[in-house]
Amino acid sequence: MKQACVYIMASSRHGTLYVGVTSALPARVWQHKNGSLGGFTSRYHVHQLVWFEMHADMLAAIGREKQIKAGSRLKKIELIETMNPQWIDLYENIL
């Protein structure tokens, strides 16, 4: 089932962050974890899903992704800690 989603991956607590958007969150996180996408998340070992937010459609999700990316690092950390104060990897919760 397709579901528009914005997500944040991290290398560790308060580590390197990556903000992305997808219509298949479990599959996309698996790709990040296994390095099959290459690029930024593979290079900087950004493999933990620490935050996500579902949206009704991709246009809404892309708009939210842009809003988050335009914000400061502190705002991203606050967003993560509101949902996931321990910075646990949420991957198992979405399967």
Rank of each mutant, 00 (worst) to 15 (best):
E65T: 13
W87I: 11
S72L: 08
I68S: 02
E78W: 10
E65I: 11
Q48N: 09
Q3P: 10
W51N: 01
V19W: 01
I77V: 15
A61N: 08
H32V: 00
K75N: 11
E53F: 03
N84W: 07
M1H: 13
A61K: 04
H55R: 04
V50N: 07
D57L: 11
R43L: 04
L17R: 08
R73P: 01
Y44R: 01
M1Q: 12
R28Q: 14
D57V: 11
H32A: 02
N34F: 09
G20R: 09
H14N: 14
V46F: 00
T16V: 14
A61F: 07
D57Q: 03
V21P: 04
Q86M: 06
A24M: 01
M9D: 00
D57T: 07
A60M: 13
E53M: 08
I68P: 00
V21W: 08
G63W: 10
E65C: 05
N34G: 04
L74A: 15
R13I: 06
K69E: 07
W51D: 01
A10E: 05
R73K: 13
D89K: 06
A61H: 06
R73N: 06
D89F: 08
L25N: 05
A4Y: 09
S23E: 10
K75T: 07
L79R: 12
G38Q: 14
G63D: 10
M58G: 12
E53A: 05
E78C: 08
Q3R: 12
A10Y: 00
F40Y: 15
M9A: 01
K66H: 15
I80L: 09
T16I: 14
P26W: 03
Y18D: 03
I94A: 02
T16M: 10
G39H: 02
Q67D: 11
A61P: 10
I8Q: 05
M1R: 13
A70K: 11
S11W: 02
I77G: 05
I62F: 07
P85H: 12
W51G: 03
A24R: 09
L90N: 09
L49T: 02
V46N: 00
A56Y: 10
S42V: 01
L25V: 11
S42R: 05
D57I: 06
S72K: 11
G15V: 09
A4V: 08
L90P: 08
W87A: 08
I8W: 07
Q48R: 05
G39P: 05
T41Q: 03
M58Q: 11
T82E: 14
